[in-house]
């Protein structure tokens, strides 16, 4: 779900940019980027099954 929200936010950012809302697009981009980093920090320590 976390990545779904990120995709949704970036899709909204693209739409805002395309519809001429430049300031809104920049704001949404910043928010999405910060949330992406937070999600990365959550998953960076995922336990992966070692296969060797």
């Amino acid at each position: 779900m976390d990545q779904m929200i990120l995709f949704l936010l970036f899709a909204a950012t693209m739409l805002a940019a395309w519809l001429g809302r430049r300031a809104l697009a920049f704001g949404l981009f910043g928010l999405s980027l910060v949330l992406s980093v937070a999600d990365y920090l959550h998953h960076a320590t995922d336990r992966l099954p070692l296969s060797f």
């Binding site: 990545q3 693209m14 940019a17 395309w18 697009a25 981009f29 992406s36 990365y40 998953h43």
Partner: peptide, 25 residues
């Protein structure tokens, strides 16, 4: 795709915002 794989796709989507702004403005 694992969560890290999905995050890389998210970053590709983020990469598209700049070009869209360049096309629009």
């Amino acid at each position: 795709p694992c969560p890290l794989c999905l995050l890389q796709r998210v970053a590709f989507a983020a990469l598209a915002v700049g070009p869209i702004l360049n096309l629009r403005f």
